[in-house]
Write a protein that binds this DNA or RNA. Structure first.
Length: 431
RNA sequence: GUGGUCGUAGCUCAGUUGGUUAGAGCGCCAGGUUGUGGCCCUGGAGGUCGGGGGUUCAAUUCCCCUCGAUCACCCCA
């Protein structure tokens, strides 16, 4: 038993994949593959990367998520130091908005398309697909009210999933209406359910007070039946919101995306408006959401902007996407492998490996060698384990002649070459 | 925060109806090959049987607590 272990709900990503308590953690090259695809697709959409601090003022996040104080006190890693309250960011939308305002990015002309990749932290009890340190990537399109912006975020996410080879996912879509319709609907829902309170589960009774829209999420049969006659969000949308929603759906159709209109899809927070959506995978258990997004025209004012700045975006859970990739048995890119592994026989050759490696690396090759002075057999085994393309063998004879034996590990053939001939030879061979 | 299940080697798991030195496969190390990997054979290292307490002549095994893992609820920004 090791003396120290990683904090519950956190995990190491190693060069090789491993299982821990039955949980598979994908090797680092899978993560890099995902990140590459994200960067690639994001740049196709004209999005630029933004990196914001892990630590943010607690107040920023508290304003962002609204007054649901439970989230701040119980679900976040927050602490006080001196007179400042810090929080380890639980999401990146509010930080990006903060950064946008802080640096007056609105002055950079038109809309900002910003994407991020990085860790987030929530103090929840871990379960499948839910960790205390987890990783998200996301896109925020700030300064655009146009329905194309809403659709664009969805299409970019679709592109990323497709590029990764993920086939099994679904997209649910809804409109939450604007600053007037949402509170009206919320009130109507409360008015409808209050007389029925006795028929609700305890959970839903709590939601009735704290977050009535969440009742729409219920999985209880009886409550779903009650919802049949409940007020419909769509009835509360004004003409502009309806038109916006229709337009988003038209754009999605033209992009060839299939979606499900789900009037029960809600987000917990008040700053969302109009478009809201969720990508789900059927392969992930209870935490089936792989990405969620929507329009948040009201956030900017919550975090201190004088004017409302229209914005739309999504956040995607990288752990869950990788779980989906693993479940679909997607081949996940390649592990890094050395071009040349140097095998040394004898003390003179051991000293030679260092200078030879330096020289070959300066020519751009990936070069490794054994650091423990082991037997030739062990060195060959190590070269094989590292999946080296070539092995360069040097003993006393080779050091005298100035030529080493370069062995092609896949072909099993070898030839005598000088050190300077190695790089061209490796380059001419198919990797 | 609540509940279910589970903790034996690096990994996946046997096992002990409580009884001398706790096993296998894979992985790791080495030898079989005096300078050649993968396959095969042989050998080896590696475990205070998650931790603490209790019952007992004796606990890895039974009981309690605790920690951890996992799944679900809650929450979901």
């Amino acid at each position: 038993m090791a003396a120290f272990k990683s904090i519950p709900g956190t995990f190491d990503i190693l060069p090789d994949g491993y299982t821990s308590g039955g949980d598979y953690v994908a090797p680092v090259h899978v993560w890099r593959r995902l990140e590459e695809v994200v960067r690639d697709v994001m740049s196709q959409y004209g999005a630029a990367e933004i990196r914001t601090p892990i630590l943010e003022p607690t107040e920023l996040i508290a304003r962002g998520v609204g007054a649901s104080s439970d989230i701040v006190t119980k679900e976040m890693f927050a602490f006080e130091r001196g007179s400042t309250n810090y929080v380890m960011r639980p999401e990146v939308t509010a930080p990006v908005m903060r950064s946008y305002l802080q640096h007056s990015l609105a002055q950079k002309g038109g809309t900002q398309r910003l994407y991020y990749i990085g860790p987030c932290f929530r103090a929840e009890r871990p379960q499948k697909g839910r960790y205390r340190q987890f990783h998200q990537f996301g896109l925020e399109v700030i300064g655009a009210a146009d329905a194309r912006a809403d659709a664009e975020t969805i299409v970019s996410l679709r592109d990323i999933l497709e590029r990764l080879g993920i086939k099994q996912y679904s997209l649910r879509l809804n409109s939450l209406g604007d600053a007037e319709s949402r509170p009206a609907f919320r009130q109507a829902l409360v008015d409808y359910f209050t007389p029925l309170e006795a028929e609700l589960t305890e959970v839903s009774r709590n939601r009735l007070r704290t977050n009535p829209l969440r009742i729409l999420d219920t999985k209880v049969e009886k409550e779903r039946a009650l919802l049949e006659n409940a007020p419909r969000l769509t009835e509360f949308l004004n003409e502009e919101s309806k038109a916006h929603h229709e337009l988003v759906k038209e754009y999605l159709d033209s992009a060839g995306i299939s979606w499900i209109d789900d009037p029960f899809l809600v987000r917990g927070l008040d700053y969302y408006s109009r478009t809201t959506y969720e990508f789900e995978s059927p392969l992930l258990g209870a935490q089936s959401s792989i990405a969620g997004g929507g329009r948040y025209d009201l956030l900017s004012k919550e975090v201190g902007s004088k004017e409302a700045i229209p914005a739309v975006g999504f956040a995607a859970g990288m752990e869950r996407i990788i779980m989906a990739m693993m479940a679909e048995e997607i081949s996940e890119g390649e592990q890094d492998r050395p071009d040349v592994f140097l095998v040394a026989l004898g003390d003179a050759a051991i000293a030679w490996t260092f200078s030879a490696a330096t020289r070959l690396r300066q020519k751009g090759l990936k070069v490794t060698y054994d650091l423990r002075g082991r037997s030739m057999k062990a060195q060959m085994r190590e070269a094989n384990r590292q999946n080296a393309r070539f092995v360069a063998i040097a003993g006393d004879d080779e050091l005298v002649s100035g030529q080493v034996q370069l062995k092609d590990m896949a072909e099993g053939v070898q030839e005598a070459l000088s050190l300077d001939e190695i790089a061209p030879r490796v380059a001419s061979s198919p990797s």
